[in-house]
């Protein structure tokens, strides 16, 4: 009841940090509770397997990983390729925006304005342009992941105290030294916020792209399973896809911890979804 009785500005809930046992036990308890209710309800109400299978039936079928792996791997490759492309292009563009003032003035507002366009709505156009193979999926992933990376990098590079720049100048640092030693480290928390959001969007984007049209990939498998009313297969596919998505997210999380150890200590759960990227999809 700390919220009501003892307000302290320092009390924060930290994600992915296993401090005390209760931090683990509580979620596990609720997870088990949720699964038990599901299991008991399905068995007691005799819900058809075509509608909703019990968790135990899904768990038994986890072994079809061998069948799913080729499609899952195809999707993960597309996600990673699109994501890396977005990271490289986004980062270069962000540096350009921060460095050249006319460029910033003309391009950055337009970039923000294009956030109004629902990117998943132009996804079908990519199929016409780039065919029904992997490239359209990669480029849709790129399209979704690109914007949060650019915008967060620009915001991160811009929010720097003038005093730090004065200091850099007074010790005679050149432009490159200032950028590498001061601006970039200063921007990294924001950059990683963008990268993590982009990683989530990349997974979603790949699935939607494969829904729209694809002959391979886990999205294709999921849609096929739904069409066959094979709900167990659908759940298993979604489960493995989620694991893949979580893995990508965790890689970003670990990379963040290694590259900016000074920041993690005062970070809270908020960084998972920065509100700055209001129109991310």
């Amino acid at each position: 009841m700390s919220f009501w009785t003892a307000p302290r500005s320092g009390s924060r809930l930290r994600m992915l940090s296993i401090g005390r046992a209760s931090n683990v036990l509580y979620p596990v308890f609720f997870f088990v509770l949720f699964m038990s209710i599901w299991e008991i309800w399905v068995r007691a109400a005799h819900v058809s397997k075509v509608i909703l299978p019990p968790p135990s039936a899904i768990a038994k079928q986890l072994g079809i990983f061998d069948q799913l792996w080729p499609d899952l791997w195809v999707t993960l490759q597309r996600i990673i390729e699109g994501f890396l492309l977005a990271a490289v292009v986004g980062f270069v563009l962000a540096i350009g925006i921060v460095t050249f003032r006319p460029f910033a003035r003309s391009v950055f507002p337009v970039l923000i304005a294009t956030q109004v366009i629902p990117k998943l709505a132009i996804a079908p156009l990519f199929l016409i342009w780039f065919g029904y193979g992997g490239w359209s999926t990669i480029l849709i992933v790129f399209l979704l992941a690109f914007f949060p990376i650019v915008i967060n990098t620009v915001l991160g590079l811009r929010t720097i105290e003038v005093e730090k720049m004065y200091l850099a100048r007074s010790v005679g640092a050149g432009w490159i030294a200032t950028f590498l030693r001061i601006r970039l480290p200063n921007a990294l928390p924001s950059v990683f916020g963008g990268l993590k959001l982009a990683a989530l969007l990349a997974v979603n984007g790949a699935v939607v792209a494969e829904f729209i049209s694809s002959t391979s990939g886990i999205g294709h498998v999921i849609l096929g399973a739904a069409g066959d009313n094979d709900i167990v297969r659908l759940f298993v596919a979604v489960g493995y896809l989620s694991l893949g998505g979580l893995l990508i997210f965790l890689v970003m999380e670990i990379a963040e911890r290694y590259s900016i150890p000074w920041h993690v200590s005062r970070r809270d759960y908020v960084s998972v979804a920065p509100p700055a990227n209001s129109r991310a999809l």
Binding site: P27, I51, L200, N204, I222, V238, L241, G245
Partner: peptide, 26 residues
Amino acid sequence: QKGIFPLVVVYHVIPTIAIAPLLSTW
């Protein structure tokens, strides 16, 4: 806060778009 919130965060991280076809079945 300790039990539900972490689960909700994990739920958000998994691509829930993937269960959209299931909702049509239901």
